[in-house]
Structure formats: C-alpha cells, structure tokens
C-alpha cells in the first residue's frame, strides 16, 4: 500500500484505493449490498421469500439437483456464493449459467485446473445465501473474487477473458479474479469435459425450461 501511495502521490489516492477495495469487498460479501444492486422489483420479490440454508422440502443431493437447489440472494449472490466454493482438494471453480429449470438456475462449473466438472442448481429467490456447501465442496479461505458469470459462455471457460471484459459496464469486472489465475490452464487447453459430464449436460439441457444465450 505504501508503494502504491507513493506512486499515486499520497493520502488522497490511498483513500480512493481504500474506497475501491471496500466497494469490492461489499460486492463480494455484503448480502444486503448485493441485493441493493439489483432492480427494486426483483429485490422486493427476493426479500419476500424465506431465508434458509437448504430447502426443508428439498429432495436429492444438495446443490446437485433441481429439487434441492442452493438458496442464494439474487444474481450477485449467485456469483458471490459460487465464487466462494472450493473442492475438497482446495480448488476453486469457474462457472457460467446454462439456463433454468423453472426458477432454478443451472450452472456448469469446472475447477481452475480443469480436473473436475460439475452441474450446480441455484435458487436466487432468497434474501441471503446458504451457509452450506454441496457435498465435496467447502468455502474457500481466499477472498472470493468472482470466477464466473450469471450468463451463458459460448466457449466456456476459454472465453473467460472476453467475458470478464464484458462485465466492465456492469461495474463488476473489478470484483473478478485476476486472469493470471486461469491463464495457464486456458493456454494449455486443459478444460476437456469428461464423458459423464457431457451426458449430464445433455440431460439437464433436455430439462431446461429457459435456455440462456448471450
């Protein structure tokens, strides 16, 4: 910080940087702030829904089934929650939204290294995000900078850089992970979907009630 302060000429810039970082922190972690960022009508709908960690009537594996989705607080909450997940091996995930089964959003995810692929089901109509993780996941201790998108990526995850740039208008791009975190895997073409995952994608796509396109 000191170095940066000097570079920008003293306290004034220091303060601006602090404010920017605070802004990022709020985007990433402050559930109320995340709700405030969305359209008031949607916010009202979300706030009227129950807050819980898991649907008490949910059936099937938590987060892996549309009948037991992960409750989160709106679309920014989706990004925040999924970006906080890491596998038991300590790998975080890249993700994008492929569509929805009724009101449940369906995300495709892959670890940063490309070693594991997932289909996750998320319900954004809740005032807060779940404190539980799907089986095989835990919350990362790192800062959960965004590592995915609540829109469809045509060439997921190889188009991560382009997609991140496209978020500049939304003001979220600064909350995203550094490209260097995945650049090597992208360069090495490390992301190859396994057969089981492809079969899952087929199945889930056949069930989608709305399909996301760019």
């Amino acid at each position: 910080m000191g170095f940066i302060s000097k570079l920008f000429g003293g306290n004034k810039e220091d303060k601006a940087l602090r404010e920017a970082l605070e802004q990022i922190r709020r985007i990433l972690e402050d559930e109320q702030f995340q709700l405030d960022m969305i359209h008031p009508a949607m916010k009202a709908t979300i706030e009227s829904c129950p807050a819980y960690d898991q649907d008490p009537n949910g059936t099937g594996p938590f987060g892996f089934s549309e009948t037991n989705p992960i409750p989160v607080n709106g679309p920014i909450g989706q990004l925040a929650y999924l970006s906080k997940l890491e596998t038991a091996r300590g790998e975080r995930i890249l993700f994008h939204r492929i569509g929805a089964v009724d009101t449940i959003d369906v995300f495709e995810a892959v670890t940063f290294s490309g070693s594991e692929w997932f289909i996750l089901f998320v319900d954004l109509y809740h005032p807060r995000r779940s404190r539980l993780t799907p089986d095989g996941f835990r919350f990362t201790q790192e800062v959960g900078q965004f590592s995915g998108f609540h829109k469809f990526c045509t060439n997921f995850p190889y188009d991560f850089v382009e997609m991140k740039q496209s978020e500049s208008e939304s003001g979220l791009s600064m909350a995203y992970i550094a490209i260097s975190k995945v650049a090597e895997s992208i360069q090495n073409r490390a992301y190859q979907r396994p057969l089981a995952h492809k079969a899952k994608l087929d199945l889930v796509r056949s069930r989608l009630t709305s399909v996301q396109t760019q």
């Binding site: 594996p61 892996f64 037991n68 089981a196 995952h197 079969a199 889930v204």
Partner: peptide, 29 residues
C-alpha cells in the same frame, strides 16, 4: 467400458433417477 465408467458418476445417476437421493449420508460422493 468407457461408457460404463461414466455411468458411475453419482450426479449422473441421480439425474437419471437411479442414484442416491439424499445428501444426508454423503453417499453421492
């Protein structure tokens, strides 16, 4: 054989309605 291996994926089985249905025992892993 490759196909049979793929069919061991717990989430795929759950999607097909043939796998474990609850998360309580962590069996889907």
């Amino acid at each position: 054989h490759q196909a049979h291996e793929a069919l061991k994926d717990p989430q795929l089985l759950a999607m097909l309605g043939t796998g474990p249905q609850t998360a309580t025992d962590g069996s889907q892993a």
